[in-house]
Simulated scan of single mutants.
Amino acid sequence: MPEKKTTARAAKAKREGKSASTQAGEFVREEIEHVREGKHGAKSTKQAIAIGLSKARRAGVDAKPSKTASKATKKKAAQDSAKAGTAKEPSATRSRGAKKALKTASKKTPAKKVASKQALSTQAKKAASKRTAASRSAAAKKAAKTKGAAGRKAAAKKAARTRKQD
Results as ranks from 00 to 15, higher is better:
K75S: 15
R29K: 08
A72S: 11
K71A: 10
A82H: 07
A101F: 13
L120P: 09
V35S: 00
K55G: 15
T146H: 02
I49W: 01
K88E: 09
Q118K: 09
T6F: 00
A84M: 07
A133Q: 12
H34G: 05
I51R: 11
E16D: 08
G60F: 01
R94F: 10
K5I: 03
A13M: 15
K145Y: 11
T104A: 06
S135G: 02
S95G: 11
A127G: 10
A10C: 02
A92Y: 06
S19E: 15
R96Y: 07
R131M: 02
K75L: 12
K55N: 03
A78T: 09
T68N: 10
K71I: 10
K43G: 10
R94A: 07
A138M: 11
A138H: 09
A128V: 00
S137M: 09
S44D: 02
A63D: 14
A77N: 10
R96M: 07
E16A: 11
K5F: 06
A82M: 14
G25Y: 02
A111E: 02
D62T: 11
K12V: 14
A124P: 06
K76E: 15
S21G: 14
R58A: 13
K112W: 14
G148T: 00
K125F: 12
S137F: 11
K83L: 11
E33Y: 13
A13R: 05
T109K: 05
T122A: 06
S44A: 03
A134Q: 04
A138C: 07
R58K: 04
T73C: 11
K147F: 07
K46N: 10
G148N: 00
T132N: 01
F27D: 02
K147H: 12
T104S: 11
Q123W: 12
A63I: 07
D80C: 14
K67Q: 05
K112M: 02
T93D: 15
S21H: 15
D62P: 06
A144C: 15
K18Q: 07
S95T: 09
L102H: 01
S21K: 08
V61W: 03
R96S: 13
A92D: 05
Q23F: 06
A134T: 03
K76W: 15
L120H: 09
S95F: 14
K67N: 13
A138K: 15
R136F: 00
E37C: 07
E3Y: 12
A84N: 13
T132V: 08
E3N: 11
A143M: 07
K64S: 15
K103L: 05
A20F: 03
T146P: 03
P2F: 14
A24K: 12
A42I: 13
I49C: 00
